[in-house]
Design a protein around this nucleic acid. Structure first.
Ligand SMILES: [Mn+2]
Ligand SMILES: [Mn+2]
Ligand SMILES: [Mn+2]
Ligand SMILES: [Mn+2]
Lengths: 196, 196
DNA sequence: ATTTTTTATTTGGTTAACCAAATTTTTAAA
DNA sequence: TTTAAAAATTTGGTTAACCAAATAAAAAAT
């Protein structure tokens, strides 16, 4: 990761990012390599994973317990992830019965920061006539998620890929007996796992 | 409320407090009266009550759902109360089945900021031989709460006042068949309601 | 009515997180 | 290799929240 991209991603001035990165380097959370690219240190990674853990557990809480739609939880979790207390997140984890993935199918790091990433294929590259389980969604965009929500597409749902249009790569899939068409853009963001 | 007391309470420099109060006045959240004392405006009160509502609901959540001891929840709630979202707190409220008091017996303002305050007597002023229900605790001090926790004293519990020592105002009470002695300092912080 | 004490306010600073506009360095093209 | 483009860095500022010390005003005591 380099400075400018980071700055763009964070929507901050590169000068600001540089300043912050240097502070993080002093705290040994990031390392500035000889080619000026930025890496998380072990310590930084631990801290980042804890935040991801909190974020995703809160997302589970919000959907499962407070009945939020999965497309609404991200923004709220962005606030909740900054609540300081390791104990709290562990208790939340227990309360939620130790979920392994968040509502979008993203894996939840455990207490020690271990996270098991499944290898997936995106729907736009899946094989015709095969059965898949949706495991994850690659975009957090609210409109995208709402659209999928309306079609009842979410992690855990099974689907069969019927065919892929040669002209625009639109895919036809069967989901719970119904056939539907999905654009290439959508297909790219639906990540699948082959059914045994 | 005057400036210096506020500053002491917040553990801030009076200059800082003055500056902040003026900013709040611009936002019409407080009013600086002619005698320089500070008042919340209607608007400010609303905002404050919402924060109290959030604080107390999170306290309930932490004790009821995450099994926290009631003496541990205050600090955590102090963070959680700043999560921005009216909707979230209303859902939390529903999830918790609309509790009317927090774990310390403090009333929880409803959606519209209404809160019903019970009139109570503190144990140090209660009448001998009468039966009371504990409704509230007047101190948030962790050691105090932990001490009461060990004695199984908490809101909802019934007690009978046996007598009050004339010399040091220590009280003897019966709580679930057992007699115990409580110092005047403790008694002052236990708020009661007469049983019918 | 003075004097003393307390409280409020002003003034001059600091630090953290930002930014815009140079300037320098690096990388990619020609 | 030069030159052009992109990325990194420096420099000089801003704003929000703070504080300490000085001064002014108000309240309390004498
Ligand atoms: Mn998210
Ligand atoms: Mn997610
Ligand atoms: Mn509290
Ligand atoms: Mn409380």
């Amino acid at each position: 990761m380099n400075n400018t991209t980071l700055a763009k991603e964070l929507d901050l001035n590169p000068a600001t990012v540089l300043e912050m990165v240097r502070k993080l380097a002093v705290k040994k959370l990031v390392q500035i390599l000889s080619d000026k690219s930025i890496r998380l240190t072990e310590k930084g990674e631990k801290k980042a994973l804890l935040i991801i853990r909190k974020h995703r557990l809160w997302e589970v809480f919000l959907t499962e317990k407070l009945q939020y739609n999965w497309n609404e939880v991200h923004v709220l979790a962005e606030q909740l992830e900054h609540i300081e207390s390791v104990d709290l997140v562990d208790r939340l984890d227990a309360f939620l019965k130790f979920p392994t993935v968040d509502p979008h199918g993203d894996p939840i790091p455990d207490k020690n920061g271990n996270l098991k990433i499944k290898t997936t294929i995106s729907l736009d590259k899946a094989l015709i006539k095969k059965n898949y389980t949706i495991v994850n969604l690659a975009d957090t965009n609210d409109i995208f998620l709402q659209y999928l929500g309306e079609l009842k597409i979410k992690p855990g749902i099974k689907l069969k890929l019927l065919n892929r249009n040669e002209y625009d790569a639109t895919v036809s899939v069967i989901i719970s007996k119904k056939t539907l068409q999905l654009s290439n853009k959508v297909a790219k963001n639906i990540l699948l796992e082959l059914v045994n």
